[in-house]
Each structure stands twice: as structure tokens, then as C-alpha cells.
Design a protein around this nucleic acid. Sequence first.
RNA 1: CGGGGCAUAGCGCAGUCCGGUUAGCGUAUCUGGUUUGGGACCAGAGGGUCGCAGGUUCGAAUCCUGCUGCCCCGACCA
Length: 491
Amino acid sequence: MSKGITSRSEDYSKWYNDIVQKADLAENSGVRGMMVIKPYGYAIWEKIQAQLDKMFKETGHQNAYFPLLIPKSYFSKEASHVEGFAKECAVVTHYRLKNSPDGKGVIVDPDAKLEEELIIRPTSETIIWSTYKNWIQSYRDLPLLINQWANVMRWEMRTRLFLRTAEFLWQEGHTAHATQAEAWTETTKMLDVYAEFAETWMAMPVIKGAKSASERFAGALETLCIEALMQDGKALQAGTSHFLGQNFAKAFDVKFTDQSGKLDYVWATSWGVSTRLMGALVMAHSDDNGLVLPPKLAPIQVVIVPIYQKIEQLEIIRTEVNKITEQLKIKGISFKFDDRDSQRPGFKFAEYELKGVPVRLALGPRDIEQGTIEVVRRDTLEKSVVQQVGIVEYIEKLLEDIQQNIYQKALNFRNENIRKANSYDEFKTILNEKGGFILAHWDGTPETEEQIKSETKATIRSLPFEYEKEEGICIVTGKPSERRVLFAKSY
RNA sequence: CGGGGCAUAGCGCAGUCCGGUUAGCGUAUCUGGUUUGGGACCAGAGGGUCGCAGGUUCGAAUCCUGCUGCCCCGACCA
């Protein structure tokens, strides 16, 4: 169909790579595992950031910035945290280069070895909590609600554009509270923020739940997550919110005096989403013609393509287009009038489909004569000719429809791909033949979880909130279980 | 980090097995013209340290060694 894009049925991974690269979202760089986010891709990330940032501020958080480099000694203070991240940390050992004696380039100066090595942050709990120690003395300093937008680095074995890169962009919220209850409320509140963002803005349905013990964040007492289903039937963790208890407060000695004068450790949370959301966005809605973007996150919501033979015709069209774009501006709808003479209309149509622009308008001599305009919506590729009168209201409504429609489509797909399995055989059959989410009983032990993982490659994505308790027996061991949990193969 | 594949013009590739003119093809780019309602056509032009570093040879894109990067499959993760 489309030039140069592998179809999903042919090779899903290749399709994903083709879209990311050909829609100009990102490309691989000269550095292993690290990508360049291109202007069009970054524009989408900026929209994601802007909305999330607004939501964080609305829930009382402030932004701050902490250092990229973390002293190695900080890292060892919280035992399970080290264990979780040690294997993938980049380490800075020297602070100077010098000219190579053989005259070929530069070498690390062996005389410039650091006394204490520095870790490039894989996450910032340690540097932040060592700082919070100085910021918190009394209950009056609480709650402390901080977020930072930053890059982090995790030395990944195998990387994929947006989904897993060695360096990625994210936000990380780090909060401190006087009581356990308040910290727990914060943990669930931020998960709700993520879920709302995913569904309302990304048009991507998610399932909220809690991670099993083995999938928890290193150092957390509880990890909550939102899980989304991709078109190939694999699950993607789209955001996490951690209840850290008093682990980091104890590790970094962060105490406060409560109203009765008693000294106690503070309660903590952390929560984050990353540029991985970009990967989720691509896989949630796109088709074999290219990217499909939800209008709320599309850098260009409406593209206008003029169709003309002579330059005089273009000028007439331009006058008509200006009338429309002035109104679009007032409505806050972003647009692009593509008057490039170097490409023909057909080329432009294909190009904007590839880039996922939600609405395309085409205006030619025939329309000028008849007072009409051609409107094509990206999600269904449906083409209609409508009157120019009232076109802006029509577009406004159409953008809402598209946002709704792609959400509904993704929701239907997701719902059709949640299945219950009542035996291990059934579980395996569903997994191999259909994929998707599987709800099944599990005895609650890490051993059984591990056995299922090694035998089927499926993992427990979460203990989902939205499914009620139900007595049953574990599909593997036959032991009693009080609820079904959510399994899937995942990214 | 293990197994497999790949690296030649911006992009996609041929040439490599079997060393030998000036390294080709498609596409993109630039110029001029004709075109423009679903990826236009004609004519001309520019563009290469053949991934990097060594080696063999009269001669290397081609043979040998090392390195780097990318892709796919595994072990680990947001």
C-alpha cells in the first residue's frame, strides 16, 4: 500500500521501526542504544510534557532539577535499590582527556582519576533523598511534592527506538509525606493522573493495577502501574507509581518532628513516565499507511493542500485558506498550509498520512467555484466534500470525533483481547494462538510466577484493580487463589 | 553478553564467491521546461576516504586480522 512501510501482518517489529523512522519521529545515532529524537517526534513529546506538567501542577507539585551524576556512595545506601540498578549503571571515573602520545586523537588522562566515582543516574531517588534530608525537619515542611523532567541512563542490552533506549527522557516525581496514608493516597492519585492522561490524551485505554512482588521497583513496598495492549497482542507498561514506605527515609536519615514533638521517618512515593509513551502512541493507533495520532497530541492537527495549475489560482486559494486559518487560530487548532510547489498534491497526501496528521483539507478550483472543500480524516481515511461555510466548526467536531473514535477502536481491541483461562493448557493455547491479556488464578507465590514465565514467556502484568475478587484455584499448582491476575507477554 | 545477518552517494541496493579500465543502478538532490483533484514527465548536472584501522599484493570494495556500529533471535529491563 504505502511506499516503504512494512505491513503489520508481514513483520510487526519492522512496521514499528519503519513508522518511527519514516514519520520522522526518531533515528538511531552513532552511539550504541541511543537515539536522536527528531523535530516532529520531539514536538509530540513536548505536547505530552505540556499536558502532564499541567496535571502535576494542578495536583500541587512543583518542578525542580537534580544532578545527572550521583556519587557512588549514595547508591549503596538502600540495599534493594542497588541490587535493582547496579547491573545497568554507567560510571564516570575520570575528569580529563589529553592528546594521545602517538598523535592520533585523545585518550583518557590516567592522572585525572576521580577520588569517588560518579554514577550517571538511572533514576534519582538517592540524590534526591540525600537532598531532602536537609529540606525536611518538621511536619510543616510536609508534604514535599517535587517533580523533575530529566534524562536518565540505563545500560540496556537490547534497545528499540522509544521502547527501550540506553538514554531516555522522562519525568520523575518524588514526594515526602508525614503519614503512610497520605503517601499511599499520593501513590494512587498519580496513577490516576497517568491513567487519565493515557485515556483522554493518548486515546489509549489502560488497566490500573499493582505489580507482583518480583516486578516491583527496586526499593518500593508497592508498585502500581498502568498497562496498555499493543496491536500485536503484547502488553506495554506505560507508567508506574511507587509507594516507597520509609525505605529511603531510613536509608538517607530523613526524619521530621510531628505535631506532638515526636521524631519519625517520612513516607515517600515516586512516579514516572518516559519517552516510552511515544512508542506506545505509535503502536496503539497506527496502521499500514503510517502513523495515526490522536488530535490532542498531534503537532499539526489540520493540513491544507492547495490544488492548482496556475500561480494565479494558488493566490485565489490562498485568500480562501486565510479565511479558514484565521478562524482555526482563534479556536486554537494547529494547522499547516502546504503551498510547496516542489511536490504534487498526491505526494503530499501520502506524506501527511505517513505522519499521522488527523485532518487533511484539499482546496482546488472546483471547490472555489462551488464553495466546497474536501476533508479527509486520517483515522478512517474517509473522504467527504463539505461546504466551506461552517468548515471550522465541522473540523472542530471532527477532531473530537477522531479522538473518540481511535480511543473506542483501541478499547474494543483491548476488550476483545482480555480472556479468562481456567487451566494451564487453556492459558497456553490462548497465549500462543491469540495473545493479549489473560486473566487467570495464581497461587500468589514467586515460584509459580517464575515457572509460568520461563515456560510460556508470559509475565504477571498486574493484580488489576478493576476485576473483583473471585475464589478459584491456581492454574499451575491447583492451590487456592482469591483473585485472578493479569498475564501477558510484554515489551 | 551469546548465536545469526549486515555495513558501497541522503535513502534502498548490485558488484565481493573467482583481486585488474574512470565503482554502477533505482530513488532523492540541483538547473531548465512541461505539469498539478492520490506518491508526475523530459533534458541536463552535482554527489563516494566502498564503516574504521592494520596486513597480503605490482594492484584491494573484493583476500586476511582486529575494531566499531546497525538489524534479527535469546538471557535482563521502563
